[in-house]
């Protein structure tokens, strides 16, 4: 959670060292109402657009609220019990999980590879940073327009490349066995640049004397990578993996757009948010969709708390 911001205010180092604020009673900060005015704008927005929907959503999950009908009535736990017995909920949760499993390793490994390569190249660094990171700045619809076109059977470039090397064509987005893989490949291309930047920053933060000492001991590049670089990147890797986990749980945009909102054949590419969207906005059932939202929320909180525990347990430095 804690962002390891490496931007420090001027002379911060001097200020941080003496007496932590809580230690000595500082009488200058008398409690006053002034601060309240400062937090008020944010608090109002926070209350209206986060707390209200949170609470309203919880209430709605116990009603049969629908977009297609005025008013609603209390139905108790009906939505919740329907949800637990709804195979589509579990299938879509599985799709989200599967996506996480197939997209995370390449998103970490390729990013690391890119960072190691870029780190060593001095001249064309800006070009490498541009080509690896630029896709991350594309709006999702641009990404899916391009990749839907690349995946096209018949005249798409991906299949063209496959055929050029003698492989058979693949119906990337219309075959239920490949649609999620296709979306994962697109996602890797699109977002790996962010992880690449994190690795790059971490690599550049490794002090030179570490390597110089190693050079004196005469270690070869592989040993240097294996025994110095990699351990020093450990924290960054953990960070990237956890960021990636939470990001994957929120899969929706590219999956929705690349399957034209249909979730792919047999819903093979409809993630849990896709099912929330379908139930609530396509199926009009706001109450039911609210219940599923809470299920997803529970999953995300559990994952976040687990990772938080792992983090605060490992690197106290934060």
């Amino acid at each position: 959670m804690t962002p390891s911001t490496d931007i420090a205010p001027p002379e911060a180092a001097r200020a941080v060292s003496p007496a932590p604020p809580g230690g000595r009673a500082r009488t200058r900060h008398v409690s006053s109402w002034a601060g309240l005015w400062f937090v008020l704008p944010f608090t109002v927005l926070f209350a209206v657009f986060l707390v209200w929907p949170m609470l309203a959503g919880l209430w709605t999950s116990f009603t049969d609220r629908s977009l297609g009908r005025a008013g609603s009535s209390f139905v108790g736990l009906a939505n919740w019990s329907e949800m637990l017995g709804d195979p589509a909920v579990w299938q879509s949760l599985w799709v989200t999980l599967l996506f996480t499993l197939i997209s995370t390793p390449p998103l970490v490994l390729i990013a690391l590879g890119m960072a190691l390569l870029t780190h060593r190249v001095s001249r064309l660094g800006w070009f490498l940073r541009f080509s690896f990171f630029a896709p991350f700045l594309l709006p999702v619809a641009v990404v899916t327009l391009i990749w839907t076109w690349l995946y096209q059977p018949g005249f798409g470039m991906v299949n063209g490349a496959l055929q050029a090397v003698g492989l058979p064509e693949v119906n990337w987005l219309t075959d239920k066995d490949t649609v999620l893989v296709a979306i994962a490949i697109t996602t890797v291309w699109w977002t790996v640049g962010f992880n690449f930047l994190l690795y790059l920053a971490a690599l550049q933060g490794i002090p030179a004397y570490v390597y110089e000492a190693a050079a004196l001991d005469g270690v070869n590049p592989w040993q240097r990578f294996r025994h110095i670089t990699l351990p020093l990147l450990h924290r960054t890797t953990a960070l990237i993996v956890t960021l990636q986990l939470v990001a994957s749980l929120k899969l929706f945009d590219q999956a929705y757009l690349m399957t034209a909102g249909a979730g792919g054949p047999d819903y093979a590419a409809r993630p849990i948010i896709g099912y929330i969207f379908d139930s609530g906005f396509t199926g009009l059932r706001i109450g039911y969709a609210s219940a599923i939202s809470y299920l997803l929320f529970a999953v995300i909180v559990v994952v976040s708390l687990v990772q938080f525990r792992l983090f605060s347990g490992k690197g106290k430095s934060a």
């Binding site: 249909a262 379908d278 396509t282």
Partner: peptide
């Protein structure tokens, strides 16, 4: 809008 659900979803949300 795209025929089928994408259209009807937009319809429902826009009308709501």
């Amino acid at each position: 809008y795209l025929w089928g659900n994408p259209f009807y979803t937009k319809f429902a949300m826009g009308a709501a």
